[in-house]
């Protein structure tokens, strides 16, 4: 069988494309470039420089902007571009802002890489939109305030460290609460950022808005991975049962013969849950545990006392 002869190629063109590919990954050292174009045989003569300049000029005239700064090449305008419209740029900037406040770690670096891969492929219009100014003004996130961003980073760190916390925070009425708790995660709810913790007593879940947190002290003991949040069971009926949409942390346990639904709720801040169940009026009733049922009755009584 005849041996297949290798197909004829233009090595210099391949070198230029390989150089471009490197530029897509970030800055490229001049030393690498000159070695690359001289096949690793750079002897300091001007020939390789002339060749390199011709290739750089070809790129420039074609519209690929490559800039040399401090001995490194950067690509300012790429060969292969993606057409991003204004809404795309806003979305990228929203991701970027959210990424900035993440604690250092894999998640942050992965997300930064995700964004960088997009930015390097910006076309002319996307670049000009980005230069015009901040496109995230419509996103009224509290965590854009630098002060808040620092607090979020700290909370993320507490969750990563998995050490018990001694917290002081204020409730809705401005009263200071002391709490021993295990951090779970930071959550974003209705333009608020909360630190979700599980109390050391009674496995009660708290979602504390981070601007209500007055002080946090990390304790030397690790969180107990076996602590399970208390499960709350309640019944909903009539129209509410028909239209109710289960939350991610709820499940339907039973449908009674009268059409009422028995819901099992786990992992929700008790105060948030009680306020929500209050909304449902007579169409909702807590079944267990008893102490939550009593808290609900207490809440109703306190509300009634406003009118006595």
């Amino acid at each position: 069988m005849a041996k297949k002869t290798p197909e004829k190629c233009n090595e210099s063109c391949i070198k230029m494309f390989e150089f471009l590919k490197r530029l897509y990954n970030g800055e490229v050292e001049f030393k690498w470039v000159i070695e690359h174009f001289s096949d690793g045989q750079y002897d300091g003569t001007s020939n390789t420089h002339v060749t390199l300049n011709k290739y750089l000029n070809a790129l420039k005239i074609f519209g690929v902007k490559v800039k040399k700064e401090n001995g490194k090449y950067h690509m300012l305008s790429p060969l292969y571009k993606i057409n991003f419209d204004l809404n795309d740029i806003k979305s990228i900037n929203n991701l970027k802002k959210a990424c900035e406040i993440l604690p250092n770690g894999k998640n942050k670096s992965n997300c930064e890489e995700f964004i960088r891969e997009l930015e390097i492929r910006y076309d002319k219009s996307a670049q000009s939109v980005t230069q015009v100014g901040d496109t995230t003004q419509s996103l009224h996130l509290a965590f854009y305030h630098s002060e808040m961003a620092e607090q979020i980073k700290l909370c993320e760190k507490y969750c990563q460290d998995k050490l018990k916390l001694e917290l002081i925070y204020t409730d809705d009425k401005g009263e200071e609460i002391n709490l021993l708790a295990s951090p779970i995660e930071t959550i974003y709810k209705k333009r608020k950022v909360c630190l979700k913790v599980i109390g050391s007593n009674g496995s009660r879940v708290y979602e504390i808005p981070i601007d209500n947190i007055k002080s946090v002290k990390q304790l030397p003991s690790s969180v107990n991975s076996n602590s399970v949040p208390t499960t709350i069971v309640y019944k909903i009926k009539n129209r509410l049962a028909k239209n109710y949409r289960l939350r991610d942390w709820e499940k339907l346990q039973d449908i009674n013969s009268d059409g009422s639904h028995v819901i099992v709720n786990k992992d929700e801040d008790f105060n948030v849950l009680l306020n929500r169940l209050m909304r449902y009026g007579t169409e909702c009733e807590i079944i267990s545990p008893k102490f939550i049922k009593d808290e609900m009755i207490d809440l109703i009584n306190k509300t009634l006392s406003n009118y006595q």
Partner: peptide, 24 residues
């Protein structure tokens, strides 16, 4: 080779950040 390429971790991280933004 210039096409957009991501590894699964990068995609998951982007989705995670999106999830944190979604309710805001």
């Amino acid at each position: 080779p210039f096409e957009l390429k991501y590894n699964p971790e990068q995609l998951q991280s982007a989705l995670k950040v999106f999830k944190s933004l979604v309710k805001n």
